[in-house]
Amino acid sequence: MAVSLRPRCEACQRPTERCLCPLIPHLPHRCPVLVLQHTSESRHALNTARLAVLGLQQAQLWVGESFSQLNAYLAAFRHPVLLFPGPEAQTVEQWRAAQREPDLLIVPDGTWRKARKILYANPCLQELPRLQLNVAEASRYRVRKAPDAQSLASIEAIAQVLAELQPEQSYAALLRPFEQLIEEQIAAMGAEVYARNYGGLT
């Protein structure tokens, strides 16, 4: 007997009865965003990068590991930056001190290992200036075991960078579907399982 698949929303990829689209904003931002999502991450139930792209007016999501069109795409921008830590990575404040502002934000999405694979598979990314975050608060990603409390989900990192680039614009709404998704995951696993696996309380 064939097993029927649960219908899913084409936009947010959630089951239709748990569609997150009513919570997804359509926020303006000066700096376009390109998310390079590793193929394995696109199958993850908590696809936070997809939610970020859906909530922004000038954002794209490319899925893969090696992107043949990337060189030509980057040629259209004067100051593209890669959101990725490194010895020469700078903060938004340091960019501003040099009287520069990025005109494209590139965000590798995946585990640290998968994100590095994207960098190695696309040499043009290694030539870009790097941007890093000043993480002041712990991540709200309460159903993930991160290397440290300041490791952010992609959607959190993107929201923070855009807020730093445009302090006059609030990007809190970008996190609403993410927070709802986390609450649903915790409710589905139950308080006891959540507390045992993640040391949290509902």
Rank of each mutant, 00 (worst) to 15 (best):
V3W: 05
P7E: 01
C12S: 06
E17Q: 10
E17W: 04
C19N: 08
C19P: 04
C19F: 09
C21W: 07
P22F: 08
I24R: 00
L27V: 06
C31H: 04
L34I: 08
L36Q: 13
R43G: 15
A45I: 07
R50T: 01
R50Q: 14
Q57R: 11
Q58D: 10
Q60I: 00
S66E: 10
Q69S: 14
N71P: 08
R78H: 13
H79R: 15
V81P: 04
P85S: 11
G86M: 10
Q90I: 00
E101V: 03
D103K: 11
G110F: 05
G110I: 14
A115H: 05
L119Q: 09
L119W: 12
A121E: 14
N122S: 13
Q126C: 13
L128K: 00
L133S: 03
N134F: 00
N134C: 07
V135M: 07
E137M: 09
S139A: 12
S139V: 09
R140P: 01
R142E: 06
S151K: 03
I155M: 09
A159I: 11
Q160G: 02
V161C: 07
L162F: 05
P177M: 12
A188I: 03
V193D: 08
Y194C: 08
A195D: 02
A195S: 13
G199A: 02
